[in-house]
Amino acid sequence: MWIGIAIVLAIILMAMLAPFIAPFDPNTKVANPETAPGGPFLMGTDRSGQDVLSRIIWGARVPLAIIAVATTMSLVIGLPIGLLSGFVGGRLDRILVLVMDSIYAFPGLLLAIVVAAIIGRGILNISFAIAVVYIPTYFRVIRNHVASVKQEPYVEAAMALGMPRRRVIGRYVLPNVAQSIPVIFSVNAADSVLTEAGLTFLGLGLPPGIPDWGFDISLNWQRFEASWWATFYPGLFILILTTALTFVGEGLNDILNPLLRKKEYKSVAEA
């Protein structure tokens, strides 16, 4: 998990410091197109003669911003309706579960493409398109967890003491289900990196001129044999970021899910 956190932090730092550490302007032609890696161009240049390294450094900004906005958005929407649906139950619950399940049934990228195509380009729009994909994940996990916490004797006791429903949900139920949030958050973040790259690769979402890993791959992949580096490095970074976020998620899951941890100790002891 610490490796994951370190890598994610390093990429965030890289994105924030982009203006200072990128050797060249990402959007200008600085050398002959498709210069091989080496010399001042550590990762070579792409088919427009732009420095690949600089584009990767700058290009970290967009995925990170989109992941942050999208996962936050889906949390902000998915959590409250999950709480409500799980706690109130009944007809409202059945309707919400049906809606969420039908969203969930779509392949994520396909759904994001549809939403992105409808609402148009822009970082905020694409974030929303991705958020829609992940709302059901929050909803389902939170709703099921709430439905079980709701049965806890202390919830009934709080009601018997005259606690209003809203307070019971906010003060008693929410803290007891909050443990599942960080795990979904990081797992969703990892997944949304891929969805974002997929969207930009397909040319949906971002206005031109913004460096982005997925977009760079789509620009250069047809020239893979002549200049593999222009496709390989952005792809590598997508892979690294996704893997790192997955590590974080798995690590959090181990910490927040003591049963799994016990198993781990056991297998260590047996070995």
């Binding site: 004797p153 202390y154 003060r171 803290p175």
Partner: peptide
Amino acid sequence: AMIFQDPMTRLDPLM
């Protein structure tokens, strides 16, 4: 007011 059979589980463990 009401008290219950199982005091062990009637208080919120996180509070």
